[in-house]
Design a protein around this nucleic acid. Structure first.
Lengths: 253, 253
DNA sequence: TCCTTCGCCTGATCCGGGTCAAGGCAAAAC
DNA sequence: GTTTTGCCTTGACCCGGATCAGGCGAAGGA
């Protein structure tokens, strides 16, 4: 689909596929890095954690990672690439639930129903760390740090779920969306101001509950106001403060 | 505020404040009932679980259970009454995040930030079981059933958080909201078709991202279509199938 | 008793964003 | 090369629900 290298997605340091070559160390950007650090590198517990991981992928654009109804056996941390999760209602209309960046985790909402309640699709070439959930639960029972980490992951996702709620203007939603993406890239060690929108305008619109045309118009306006620079899917945030001000009611802080 | 007894809220069996008089048994309707049953009544582990609970309340209408920014120390299971959670943005506009019925749990979204990210207010006379979270985590590490229960609670809430998302008509939202309330009451052992809307029309509107006037109009229309019977805050669902059909895109199943 | 307040309902008007339609562009397929 | 196919953009129009304004009834206070 896209052949040119998206700016910001693949900066030199750190690599989008983080170094985890040796068996006692995880991806530096990974959502579980905290748990690993908490127990200390080299300890036998970390070894156990590492053993329950399996690298899967690469998936290509449009591939399903899992589908609605699949039995829940594992959660997936994105190593590189991007994923969207979505549900399809009985009229066949798609509803995008979220986009997931390297280091972020999908599948947590499947714990309760024990089946995945949504689809997950790769938006570009994407790889994962697959964590067996039964094994991880068992480990969590032995390692408080792992348990706490899982609680925090779940709780964190609860907080972000309510971000897109609320009746807000198209400008507010879009500005908040762009700032949020930037913050998340930055939190994982990438550029927070220059990155690719790997998802289509339609997916953004669907996620923000807008029409694709509205997304297009708002982005065009933001560009003319020099809030952003945008060419195709290559995005640069020129005035983060300005964007944050527009989206302030949807953003933490 | 309300003096008359709301129909369906206080049916004879079970009582809204469930029987937990003896020290080894929990509220029958409680969200933690499953965990208790899993380990079996009378076991020492259940005794531990029981020890970390504290009954708090009754809170009166409008009382805060916790406020945004309060340090997170415990989660709260509603024993009787009703609560709303909400955030207030910097312009002072309130945003209702959810309503919680007897047996349901609030505070899970505070685990990660370690401070409550929202306010919780009693919508009527309300009592709680307060579970110290540090103690509960420690117990979860010793009792897989408790750990699993917490994971499931968190995951379940993740699923419901995405219910109000999506661009849906006022009719769809309202129908789904009423059906959802009914199902939740039923799941806790109350009448699923006859209960009180303890929250104001304004709160419903805020939660559903509608204007209070729209809520009023839709409810009036539903009544004229004989989908519901409504007098003040006393609600009866007359045609659940009809409501489910209207709200089908927002409801599970 | 009157008056205020609050929650709720209803009508009139207006606007943001959806919908429809058309066209441009670049990558991919032939 | 040409054509096809997505994806994106732009313009014109329209509608659902917000906003504004007014009225009603119950509760509470002076």
């Amino acid at each position: 689909m896209r052949t040119s290298q998206p700016a910001g997605r693949l900066p030199d340091p750190p690599s989008p596929i983080s170094d985890d070559g040796d068996t006692t160390r995880f991806c530096r950007t990974c959502a579980f890095a905290g748990a690993c650090i908490a127990v200390g590198y080299g300890k036998p517990e970390l070894e156990s954690l590492h053993c329950l991981v399996e690298h899967v992928g690469a998936y290509r654009t449009g591939d399903h990672v899992f589908r609605t109804g699949d039995p829940f056996r594992a959660i997936y941390a994105v190593r590189g690439g991007m994923v969207k999760t979505c549900v399809v209602d009985k009229e066949g209309r798609e509803q995008v639930l979220g986009f997931y960046l390297p280091g972020e985790v999908i599948g947590l909402n499947a714990i309760y129903p024990e089946h995945f309640p949504c689809d997950a699709l790769a938006l570009e070439k994407t790889e994962f760390c697959r964590f067996s959930f039964p094994a991880m639960s068992a480990l969590a029972a032995r390692m408080p740090a792992v348990q706490q980490h899982l609680f925090r992951l779940l709780s964190k996702e609860l907080g972000t779920a309510s971000l897109l709620a609320g009746d807000h203007s198209a400008d507010e939603r879009m500005a908040a969306f762009l700032c949020d993406l930037g913050r998340r890239y930055e939190a994982r060690g990438f550029s927070g101001t220059h990155f690719a929108l790997s998802m289509s305008r339609g997916d953004i619109a669907n996620y923000l509950r807008l029409a694709a045309e509205t997304v297009s118009r708002v982005l065009t306006r933001f560009r003319s106001q020099e809030l952003i620079a945008l060419e195709g899917r290559d995005l640069e945030l020129l005035d983060v403060k300005g964007l944050e001000k527009i989206g302030q009611n949807l953003l933490p802080d």
